[in-house]
Design a protein around this nucleic acid. Structure first.
Lengths: 256, 256
DNA sequence: CGTTTGTTTGACGTTACTCAAATCTCGTGG
DNA sequence: CCACGAGATTTGAGTAACGTCAAACAAACG
């Protein structure tokens, strides 16, 4: 009976239940491992385009990879991020996207062999389900992100981000336990992600503080004083109304 | 030898090459068809939540389905849209998303049986590839959308939308041929999609007109006067600089 | 400890939202 | 085919929010 490959032993993709490699039969794991490349990335490091040509599929074992686009003036925007457990298949991705993958934290990834990946997708039902659900959840997250951010102002965006990120990482006690929230990456990056300026982040945090929802202990450490208040702020839209399906029903009534 | 089901004969999902049903072996097609439900939707009609409980997977044969969220004040936001050929799997989707699916144009969809879909995904390689690529492209489109829109002002967003939509439908001569662009849905919906107010859409179009990029013939009919100019406006970001990877390379040089 | 990088604060300008009203479009029924 | 009316778009004026620039301040790093 073949052994678990050394490089997989400590990898979250294999160790955490529900992650892609955890459901593979040992021989598939060995075969995949032999053709794959685990890598560590420092914060700010980008995934090289040449690596993506040969290994366009990456599994994220730990950390956060952002799709970060730079403008000529130095401003950037972070369109999305991928988190631990995500399987990111960049075959057929728009060319620019591949130059934009940046580690927002210290990150561990594994470049997966496309041919072996396809083989596993054909043969292993559980792996297929996990990869499919991962890709689904990437789409859903993006949709939620746009739906929530597009009509919100700075303080609401911040509140939404804090709530959403805690929810996304609810399995990771490090960032979610207790009333303390640690900003997962730099404020500059957060600003790029929320589509606002770093200065506005700062002012927005102060604003939430004045309302009594949070307290900023240090630059990246936030104490959540009133979870409910924070949630209700997060759900507000531009005009201060609470978001709901109420108006939708109202329109249906009008029409009938 | 079994016959092609009647309801599939005129359906784009079967007729257009590269669409999901076109690659199915006849017997799979028959089996899927028997458990599936083709439906037509009028503009503004929503996909019923109860239908989604039983058929959470829909194939879009024709038209545009938007994820439209309403706020209590009547404003909405359209986070995403799905177009012909997309396979949308809503199993595991956030609950609210399912109440938000609205036809932005006259639309033909087909509710697909999940069990049969899974079976096909296991057995038919081509179908698996097509469904996977469709889901991939949904994610990529969302990422592009956020990357492009987050740091753009109203006129640039409009220009981007026109260019992008023509590209997305480049296979459909109806909307892309010649210098005439027909807004695919109402300006109110476009405003919701671009995250701005209807008034701003109007002013933005006027602005593009004054620059000589387009001419608004009727409310929904736009003549593209200068494609290159329009493109270059679409690529501009908030501060008027052209977007590029130039700064990225600059930072890499600094670091080394 | 000094340098670099990131965050905060303030003053000012611009954009886009808000509200209100006029005008236009298009589907409907006569 | 035309007239009507609801819904959609346009226009204008006033205002709030955010971007921009510049400089002080704090934190992280070797």
């Amino acid at each position: 009976m073949p052994e678990i490959p050394k490089s997989c032993r400590g990898c979250a993709l294999y160790c955490r239940t529900g992650f892609f490699c955890s459901v593979l039969p040992t021989e598939s794991l060995v075969a995949l491992s032999e053709l794959s490349r685990p890598r560590s990335l420092k914060i700010g490091e980008t995934i090289s385009e040449t690596a993506l040509e040969m290994w366009p599929i990456i599994g994220i074992a730990d950390g956060i990879i952002g799709v970060k686009r730079f403008q000529s003036n130095g401003n950037g925007s972070i369109a999305a991020f991928f988190v631990a457990g995500d399987i990111v298949d960049l075959r057929g991705a728009p060319a620019r996207m591949c130059s934009d993958l940046t580690a927002l934290t210290e990150t561990k990834v594994c470049y997966l062999s496309p041919s072996m990946f396809d083989e596993i997708m054909a043969s292993c039902k559980d792996a297929r389900r996990i990869a499919w659900e991962s890709l689904q959840s990437q789409t859903f997250r993006m949709i939620e992100q746009v739906a929530e951010l597009s009509k919100k102002r700075a303080p609401e965006r911040l509140a939404w981000f804090i709530c959403e990120f805690r929810r996304l990482h609810s399995t990771n006690p490090d960032t979610t336990r207790g009333p303390i929230f640690r900003l997962p990456f730099r404020q500059v990056d957060l600003a790029d992600y929320l589509g606002i300026q770093p200065e506005t982040i700062s002012r927005g945090l102060r604003h939430l503080e004045q309302q009594g929802a949070i307290r900023v202990l240090k630059a990246k450490i936030i104490e959540i004083v009133d979870q409910d208040l924070l949630m209700s702020i997060a759900m507000r839209s531009q005009d201060g109304e609470l978001a709901s399906a109420a108006k939708h029903r109202f329109r249906v009534l009008q029409a009938s």
